[in-house]
Amino acid sequence: MGAVSTSTIAPDVANLQRIALKIFLDDESLLEPGDVIPVFHRWIQTQAVDGLLIDVADYSHMPTGPCVVLVAHEAHYVLDRAGGRLGLQYARRQPLDGPLSHRLATLGRLLLRAGRLLETDTSLPGPVRFRGNEIECVANDRLLAPNRAETLTAFRPALDAFLATLSAGAEWTLTQETDPRARFGLLAQTQAAATLDTVAERLG
C-alpha cells in the first residue's frame, strides 16, 4: 500500500483556496530567524497584521523548512527557509471570496503588508529588505492543484494578471517545481528591479 497518485484527477484551480506566497530576503545574513520571534509576538499583541493571530511556533532549530511561524486562524505568516532561501511566506488556510485572480491579489497585499512591517521594524538588528522582483507561489492542495502541466495551464491566466500588476507589465520568467509529488509551485522572477514599497503600491 502506498501514497495514492492524483495523476488522473483534473485540476480545479478555480476552487483552489490554500495558496502560499513567499517573498525573499535580499541579504539573508542580516536576519537571524530567532530575531523575528519577538516581532511576531508583538504583532499578536498589537494586532499588527490581518487575521485572528494565535501563537508563534519556533522551528529555528531546523536547517530547512519553516523557521518561525505566526500561527493564525486564516493563514500562517512564516519566516521560511524552504529551498534553502530565507523569506516571508503567507500561507492561506481559510477561504477567500472572489475569483482566483482576485484572491491572489488579496494574498499578495497581505503578504506585502507583513513584509513592509518587517522592513520598517526598528527592533531588528539589521536592515531587512525583501526583493521586489521575485515571488514564489505554492498551491497547498494536491487534490485541486496537483503538480502537473495541466495545473500550470489552468493557473496561468490568474497568475499572469497578478504578476503583471506587481511588475507594472514587465515580463516574468516562471520556474515550476519539478518533483511531481511536491505541491504545485512556481518561482516567478523579473529583471525589473523594484522595492517592496513600489510593488505594494502597484497592487493597491
Partner: peptide, 13 residues
C-alpha cells in the same frame, strides 16, 4: 504521505 499531510493540513513540520 506524512510529508504531504504536514504541508497541507499542518505547518509543514
Amino acid at each position: 504521505t506524512l510529508a504531504d499531510l504536514s504541508e497541507e493540513y499542518s505547518d509543514g513540520v
